[in-house]
């Protein structure tokens, strides 16, 4: 994996990694993905993938407001910054 590819992956992951971290994690990724490639030994032609073992399909609940155990103030207090009942973020555009 090139440094450029790893940087792209870190960007996709919203991680600002230091140079030391990049070097260490890059090596780990190479080794782990190398291990994973043993799956190529198996023929999976015509095998369906299994994404979940839930034995069920989507379950929808009625579109109704349900009581929540915490109130608005408590939830807003969890945010690092809030103002006028809203969570504050830096300018986006």
């Amino acid at each position: 994996m090139t440094e450029k590819e790893l940087q792209h992956l870190a960007d996709l992951s919203a991680l600002s990694l230091s140079e030391a971290e990049m070097a260490a994690l890059g090596g780990d990724l190479e080794r782990i993905l190398g291990y994973v490639r043993q799956l190529d030994e198996l023929d999976t032609t015509d095998v369906e993938p299994t994404f979940q073992v839930y034995e069920m399909e989507n379950i929808w609940r009625p579109d109704e407001i349900v009581a929540f155990e915490a109130d608005r103030e408590e939830l807003l207090a969890l945010a690092p910054e809030s103002k006028d009942n809203q969570i504050k973020v830096p300018k986006v555009l």
Partner: peptide, 28 residues
Amino acid sequence: KTLGEIYSKSRDEGLMPENKRRILIGNF
């Protein structure tokens, strides 16, 4: 300072190396 930095720096400082390793493998 910027929104992007809030995401990436908070995650870099707030997560352990093993968390990052798994996130990177997962996104790869």
